[in-house]
Computed example of a mutant assay.
Amino acid sequence: MNTAAAPPSAAPPSPRALARRRRREALRSFAREYSRRRAGMVGLVGLLLLVVLALCAPLLVDPADLTVTRAPGAAFEPPSARFPLGTDDYGRSILDLIIWGSRVSLTVGFLATAVSVALGTLVGMTAGHFGASGGTAGRLLSSVLMRLTDWFLVLPTLVLAVALAAVLPRGTGTIILAIGLTVWPATARLVRAQTLAVEARPYVERARALGGGHLHVMAWHVLPNVMPVVLAQTTLLVATSIIAESTLAFLGVGDPTTISWGGILESARNAGAISSGIWWYMVPPGLAIALVALAFTLCGRALEAVLDPRLRERR
């Protein structure tokens, strides 16, 4: 009779290891589901190419060729082998201007979106949480925050952004602040609705019963559940922010010391390119704005479909 002891069983994985495994599985599942969205993949590839182009702009374009005193060509040259997209009224290559301008347009788009999303998430989550479980004082705070959100929501966004950009000192930081402070209300209302849905779930009530305070509930239970909505909203707002920056630059309230796609369009308008039929000065920057907005929109819709189970079932 074999009396040898059986080998000891392996120790169960720690909670931290289980959490890491679940996160890896969730990321793999997300990647598989996103890769099935052809439109989202097209938008993602386009955005990656655009980001690489913006990062490599100093290697592709000589900044000296972008100055009006050292232009490499003659004014208003049509597209040719030397200048694939023609030149502007100073003789600068339109292609070089678009490549260099992508840096400013993308930077403003990302940073303005970060300001808007951060502000909208903070306001929406605070209003939703204290409106659901903050008592009389909490409901008053929620009401004040949402009335403030409604006030910003009914204001004309473009007019408010132009007013802020005109009052504050000119610069890229002013444009970022002006856009970020005008497009956050939609995010706030979306996050508030999602927060109210999360606050009604049993595990949140259990956390409160066990002594979890407002900060604990918001940071560990509400925020992780509203992040998918925030992520999808972020990709959509980047496109809105880039278009807003281009609009402000076209209206002449942008930063005159930097080159952006909207600034190129504004220069084309001032140079009379529209009445003169110089299409290569207007069409390329307009197409660049439209294509990057389309790419971000495709990614945002794909993320929304992947992260929302109801939309995933309709696929």
Rank of each mutant, 00 (worst) to 15 (best):
W280H: 08
R269E: 07
E304F: 06
L294C: 11
V306Y: 00
P285I: 01
S260H: 12
N270M: 12
R269T: 11
L291E: 09
W261V: 12
L294R: 01
V306K: 02
A268P: 13
L298H: 00
A288W: 03
C299H: 02
A295T: 03
I274V: 13
T297S: 05
L265C: 09
S267L: 10
E304W: 04
W279I: 13
S260L: 10
G262D: 10
L311H: 07
R269I: 11
R269W: 12
S276Y: 07
M282D: 08
N270I: 08
P284R: 13
R301N: 10
M282E: 06
G277F: 06
V283D: 08
A305V: 04
G277R: 11
F296A: 02
I274P: 06
A305P: 01
A268K: 14
A271I: 13
A273C: 15
M282F: 10
W261T: 09
P284T: 12
N270G: 15
L311V: 03
W261S: 06
A295Y: 02
S267W: 12
S276M: 12
V292E: 02
V292C: 03
W280I: 07
G277E: 14
G272F: 09
S267R: 11
W279V: 08
I289E: 05
M282Y: 10
W279K: 12
G286R: 09
G263D: 12
A290M: 06
P285C: 09
M282Q: 07
P285F: 09
D308L: 04
A295E: 01
L265W: 11
R310H: 05
I259T: 15
G286C: 08
V283E: 04
F296V: 02
V292K: 08
R310N: 05
G262S: 10
G277D: 11
L307C: 03
G272S: 09
I259P: 14
G277I: 14
G286K: 09
E304V: 00
A273M: 05
S267A: 14
C299V: 04
V283R: 05
A293S: 08
A295Q: 02
L303F: 01
W261Y: 11
L298P: 04
W261F: 13
G286Y: 09
G286P: 09
S276Q: 11
T297R: 09
W280S: 13
I278M: 13
M282L: 15
I259G: 14
F296R: 02
G272C: 06
